[in-house]
Amino acid sequence: MPRVFFTAHLRRHVKCDTVDVDAPTVRAALETVFESEPNLRSYVLDDRGAVRQHVMIFVNDRPLGDREAQSDAVEPKSEIHLLQALSGG
Rank of each mutant, 00 (worst) to 15 (best):
Q70E: 13
G49E: 08
V74R: 01
V19T: 15
D66H: 09
G65C: 07
P63I: 06
V33S: 02
R48S: 13
D72W: 06
S36H: 08
P38A: 05
F58T: 04
E79A: 14
A69W: 08
P24S: 14
L30W: 12
R48C: 07
T32C: 02
H81C: 08
P24R: 12
K77D: 15
D72C: 02
S42I: 04
R27F: 00
D61R: 03
N60G: 10
F58H: 07
V19W: 02
R52V: 07
K15L: 13
C16W: 00
G49D: 09
P38T: 06
V59E: 07
S78K: 01
E68F: 06
V51E: 06
E75P: 00
P38R: 06
V21P: 14
N39G: 15
A50G: 08
C16R: 01
V44Q: 05
F34Y: 13
R62Q: 15
C16V: 09
R67N: 05
A73H: 10
L45T: 01
E31I: 05
E31M: 03
D72T: 03
H81Q: 11
I57A: 12
A50S: 14
E75I: 01
R27S: 09
F34Q: 05
P76H: 08
L82D: 09
L30P: 12
F34D: 07
D22N: 11
Y43H: 13
Y43K: 05
P38C: 05
K77W: 10
R67S: 06
V19C: 09
N39Q: 14
H54W: 13
A69I: 01
G65K: 10
S36K: 13
V33L: 02
P38M: 09
R41W: 10
S36F: 03
A23D: 05
V33D: 07
T25Y: 08
S36L: 09
D17R: 10
L45Q: 01
E35K: 02
R62G: 11
T25R: 05
Q53N: 11
S78L: 05
H81N: 10
G49L: 07
